[in-house]
């Protein structure tokens, strides 16, 4: 147990890169509202070093927040060989889209691939559901 538990969950800034995952898309084909889809989508993969630094633990949940939205997702270390400090990976989904800017500069194309957000321990909060 680090100091984290005594403080208000500290916040860190990260960049989020979104990607596609076939198992997640497959779950979407079967049912975009199903549990499996939520399990596979509401996840952020972090650099192992970052997780240590931010005192965030595998299997816990994180709050991701910026001006456009706020979601609670599962937290996991990524298994890339190379580190990716300051960058988190999420699959394309309503959870990552909740954080995408509504600013488009009138171009009609949202900045899907440029998400910045703050991340903090979600304590006991439940993973965000879009399926009420």
């Amino acid at each position: 147990m680090g100091f984290g538990q005594f403080l208000k969950a500290p916040e860190y800034d990260i960049k989020i890169i979104t990607y596609r995952d076939i198992f997640q898309s497959t779950a979407l084909e079967s049912s975009g509202c199903g549990d499996e889809y939520a399990e596979r989508s509401a996840v952020i993969l972090l650099d192992k070093g970052d997780m240590k630094k931010m005192v965030l633990k595998d299997g816990r949940k994180a709050v991701l927040k910026n001006n456009f939205g706020r979601v609670v997702v599962h937290l996991r270390p990524s298994d890339y060989d190379e580190g990716h400090e300051g960058i988190g990976y999420m699959t394309n989904s309503p959870w990552s889209n909740a954080l995408v800017s509504s600013e488009t500069g009138g171009s009609g194309v949202p900045k899907f691939k440029m998400i910045t957000a703050s991340i903090s321990d979600a304590k006991d909060e439940k993973v965000t559901s879009f399926d009420e």
Partner: peptide, 29 residues
Amino acid sequence: SDPMSSLPGSIAKELLDISVITIDPCNTL
């Protein structure tokens, strides 16, 4: 198509304020 999940949440929410008709094989958001 399922813009509720594929568009940024901040934009998709506007769909809640207008009359939406969907034609789709599956149940979507």
